[in-house]
Design a binder for these strands. Sequence first.
DNA 1: TTAAGAATAGCACGTTTGTGCGATTGAGAT
DNA 2: ATCTCAATCGCACAAACGTGCTATTCTTAA
Lengths: 219, 219
Amino acid sequence: MPSEMNINICASVWLVEDNQHYRQTMVDLINQSQGLDCKYAFDSCEAAIEQMRTAEPPEIILLDIGLKGMNGVEGVKRFKEITPATHVVMLTIHEDSNLVFEALCAGASGYLLKDSSPERVIESVKEVLAGGAPMNAQIARKVVESFRQFNLPKGDYGLTEREKEILGHLVGGLSKKQIAEKLFISFHTVNTHIRNIYEKLQVNTRSGAISKAFKERLV
Amino acid sequence: MPSEMNINICASVWLVEDNQHYRQTMVDLINQSQGLDCKYAFDSCEAAIEQMRTAEPPEIILLDIGLKGMNGVEGVKRFKEITPATHVVMLTIHEDSNLVFEALCAGASGYLLKDSSPERVIESVKEVLAGGAPMNAQIARKVVESFRQFNLPKGDYGLTEREKEILGHLVGGLSKKQIAEKLFISFHTVNTHIRNIYEKLQVNTRSGAISKAFKERLV
DNA sequence: TTAAGAATAGCACGTTTGTGCGATTGAGAT
DNA sequence: ATCTCAATCGCACAAACGTGCTATTCTTAA
């Protein structure tokens, strides 16, 4: 009974950091903070992963991005595979945009500069618990722009609705005959639609049409 | 000569905002700020787009997200089509995550709460000029997570290097014969590789393989 | 040293595709 | 009232594809 009493009051935190001094400082800081409980601290991702085999995963992992052995970016990937619900916050010395950016792509929820004030550290952790993603404006911009790269260039080749529908079925892997059956139209009609699609997309194989459909976000 | 003298000193700003009072306040604020020059202010996206037909596009557009007529999200899309280099910062009253998020996807560089302090307004504009993306942690998290959705699920079907290479050529639209020529191997070998790819991906058509390659980010 | 797997190569045959020619119908625009 | 365009349907045929079997070489792991 006594041990289960505070699981909802305190958010559990794990720390992965190879500098022993900094590690102890952080553990103390976290444990002094109301609502946070640093259950374990490790000097490598491997050790933390090992601990996960037996212990309840934490709500938050603070993870040094520049570890020896398995580095921070790799670490995030592994942690998120094992326990997707756990938030990972990167600890970094300098704001190396690329590294932090990679970590975010790999599943990190935000990052924290190592020389942040104790107040800022605690604030960031609570920000993550509240559904936020602590990061600076430069990183945010990189993320937004990369995101846009995947989202925006929605090409328009003047496909009709019917053509888009049939293109969708091509992507779905159906043969002409199967499409005809599904749409209650003749095989020849499907054939005609497909030639028109090919002409508009400027391709002459199914593969080309499907690739274009994905690349230009037509589907 | 005199008119060209300050083009590199002052960043040009346009404002699109339908509340006349707030518009005037903002124009004054921007023009009082060193390094910023609010060249035009409009009460609709349509008016701003019209102006773009004749005037040099600005470096930054401050754009109300809740306009009548063409709304802010639509506006961003149009602006970025016309002048991709221009940064668009959304102006919003309440932090409606979804709307702001959409605007960011559509090309906005950040957003600004309308009740921000004058200092914060100017700071945000300069943040954008410096390559940042002003936004709060909640929005940042949404962006990161959406981004991850596109980036992460990199499936692994145990394809060998050679198979991945050939899958790439299938996506590229090459026929078996063309792949054989490109790789200096026999048609039959390509045939064998493709059957193995199909088996590993659990498909039995080229379309299926290509779709899977895109969906699972194998390429 | 043996087993497993990756890369290579081959043949046969039915199915599917891409493309050369058409055609008719109906809705909407000029 | 004419015209354009989307959607429908048709035939023929060469080329490409998918899949049933088999087989050799070389590397790497057990």
